[in-house]
Simulated scan of single mutants.
Amino acid sequence: MSDRRTLWGVGCGVIAGALWGLVFLTPELAAGFTPLQLSAGRYLAYGLIAAVLIAPRWNRVRTLIDMKGWRALIRLSLLGNILYYICLAQAVQSGGVAMTTLIIGLLPVSVAVLGRHDHGSVPLRRLALPLALGVAGIACTVWGSIGGTSGSLFGIVCAFGALIAWTLYAVDNSRWLSRLDTISSQDWSLLTGLVTGALALVLAMPAFLLSPGIHSGVQWWGFAGLMAAVALLCSVIGNAFWNRASRLLPMTLVGQMILFETLFALLYGFLWEGRWPYLSEVVAMGLLCASVLTCAAAHRPRTPQASA
């Protein structure tokens, strides 16, 4: 039973990673639209879907959140959704899918470092090897992506902005979930989507009215369909599979599952561009995988024999 539970949990983690990887390809599929429009469109759709799903339980759920909780949801929505996706979309459009994916792929290590004082964390010295491998991987990514163009440099800065935003979100969100014992993780996720949708309404005015761009009716309908598909597949279904994997697997293994998002995003990017990875990207992928795996290994509890 334990083996079946582990296999099912890994399978859910793989599916979540495959769906989340689509997020990195979306800016290329909607290249004519700005990162602000992509963020507003995606999270308007996510907010509508979250509202429909949480509506039957709304009267009960809203009484479980106090004012501090609502302020936390606003902060988490800004960091983990709005700001993160604006930076990600701009990074992809300026520097490409591969560069953006490799830099953001350092998330498991950056989250471990920022949350090193939380329960279950490990001393920073045990993260020295994962950090060194991660820095080396990023160095290969930057070296292979700059190419002397200002667009690539701007894309790299935006990718690091996305990495920082989601790292802050992941640690803060985890801390809030540990404090909450009256609301399920699924309802907390839907509430985050609801608040994100409300923030996207504010974002929609400068995104669509002040700089609408020149698009045909067909392009606008295609954009709407793409945003709805991303919201449903990545934000709703992807999160559901991730929550299932989190319940079936130990935390050390769950952390490694994030790697599948990176690998699938790279696969989609190479297929979209119709090419094989460059040597610098192959080396960066290897270093990134080693960084995440050694970070997970550092979090494994040490037995007396292993310590000896």
Rank of each mutant, 00 (worst) to 15 (best):
S189G: 09
A290E: 06
I183T: 15
V254F: 04
G217F: 07
V171F: 05
L177I: 14
S110A: 13
P212G: 08
V157A: 07
M99G: 00
V254I: 14
V111Y: 01
T294L: 07
T63M: 12
A40S: 09
V282D: 00
L19K: 12
G9P: 11
G9Y: 03
E28R: 11
L266Q: 05
F208T: 08
G269T: 11
T34S: 10
F160M: 00
Q305W: 08
A136C: 11
T141R: 02
R60L: 11
G17Q: 08
A98R: 00
A89F: 03
T262I: 14
G134R: 04
L253K: 05
L293M: 13
L124P: 06
L163V: 10
A132M: 09
P250Q: 09
R175G: 15
L29P: 05
M1I: 14
L7R: 14
I49D: 01
V283Y: 04
A229Y: 08
V122A: 13
A91W: 04
A207R: 01
P27E: 03
R42P: 05
A297D: 03
V282A: 10
C87F: 05
G148V: 06
R244V: 15
T141H: 01
L226F: 12
V171M: 10
W221Y: 13
G13F: 10
L263G: 11
T63Q: 12
G105M: 06
G120W: 01
M251D: 09
C234E: 09
L53Q: 04
M1S: 11
V10M: 12
R60A: 14
